[in-house]
Design a protein around this nucleic acid. Structure first.
Lengths: 220, 220
DNA sequence: TTTATTTGTCACTCATCGGTGAGTAACAAC
DNA sequence: GTTGTTACTCACCGATGAGTGACAAATAAA
């Protein structure tokens, strides 16, 4: 008898702006939470990433995040699981009509593809920034998923091409990838990196030219 | 009469571990706050960097931070002011007994010096991580101070050497610096970067060798 | 229909944050 | 001493964070 909901209905008989037929569908809710989390991370970064913010963005109660994902950690894991498909979705597999005859051809192409893909994907940028900013269990798992996907992609694209003799390709490529990631992060955060402006397309052309030159310098 | 402090003294008559003759000295307190802030930033990163944390670390009331520095922004500015001297303190000016005959000689040397300096300075690492993670007024000021100091150092060390014709040295150097910064940040956060382990001295030798090769590749 | 389970909401605790106003303790000038 | 200034502390505010237990409502099972 107490708190009989019927006595409250007249209160809201004003024309509701959003009736929002929220169907009861766990699957849909889970997806909504995941998408909201990814969007939130992409837009706001990891600073304001938390249970409350995700729930707010999803438009549901945070309790559901605990129930369905076991808290923020589980949710981050779910994001990580999605990440495996990132490279596949984001980076073209074809060679853009080029014939990649040498390892240098390959790495030049891959560098530019990776640069572009990262520039185009705010979520991935946020994750990379997160990776270098703290070292928690959450980040570690995300990071692992990302690095694995990236390594697979590199390996797959490599085909039968081999790096020049006497060059530690793993180390060199790590540095190249580091450079690309940091350039993109810097640009995204402050529009420049070490005195090099990175705003206009022309700026980026300069950066790409320099990157190509560097790649060609090591790999010929 | 109310709240007479004398009635409370018996509570803390246990042997105090730190009597800490805190003399009343504004200058010393200001320094203590600044040092605590820098230490806190270096140790914990920017995540937990705030008024309360700094005050706790300093062992004083946060009110003093407002009074002496006008809040966290002013404190960050003070840290930034210190930063100008970083390069001078941290990176040796001499050439390590080498004769730097070419621009390639120079950049190889500078790259390794910068790498080492960054590896050795946790505060600077945190700041770099901060720079690529958010874009607030605080960070922008810190970032500016750092980048200015770095540019000055580069210019000073360059002397009369000039880059090879046809190479956009600004862009190339930006990428090199980006690579170094990211490599160090990655190592610091996760002990590896893009599949390259970065823990043991041997790991770092590999990275340095690769870096040298890259520098020589562009600059000869 | 009655019952049980799933789905979602609400209301709360506890901790910590940035920020502020008012008060206390030391020291200098008189 | 008394007075006034400076250095410093304390106690509180509102907001927001993570996390939890209880309850309402829709749906499925009986």
């Amino acid at each position: 008898m107490l708190n009989d909901p019927m006595v409250l209905t007249p209160i809201s008989d004003a024309p509701q702006a959003e009736p929002e037929k929220r169907v009861r569908d766990r699957g849909a809710t889970e997806k909504a939470i995941l998408n909201a989390a990814k969007a939130l991370l992409a837009e706001e970064g990891f600073q304001n990433f938390g249970i409350n913010a995700v729930a707010r963005k999803t438009g549901c109660d945070k309790q559901l995040i605990y129930r369905y994902y076991g808290g923020l950690n589980g949710l981050v894991d779910a994001i990580g699981a999605d990440l495996g498909t990132w490279v596949k979705d984001r980076i073209p597999e074809d060679t853009g009509g080029m014939f990649l005859l040498t390892y240098g051809d390959l790495m030049e192409r891959l560098s530019l593809l990776f640069l572009q893909a990262l520039r185009d994907d705010p979520l991935m940028r946020r994750i990379v920034a997160w990776e270098v900013s703290e070292n928690t269990e959450q980040v570690r798992r995300l990071s692992e998923a990302r690095s694995k996907a990236l390594a697979n992609w590199l390996e797959r694209m490599r085909g039968s091409l081999t790096p020049p003799k006497g060059v530690d390709a793993v180390a060199v490529n790590a540095i190249l990838i580091a450079a690309i990631q940091h350039i993109v992060l810097s640009a995204s955060a402050g529009g420049q990196c070490a005195g090099l402006a990175l705003k206009t397309p022309k700026d980026w052309e300069k950066a790409e030219t320099a990157l190509k030159r560097i790649v060609r310098g090591v790999y010929g």
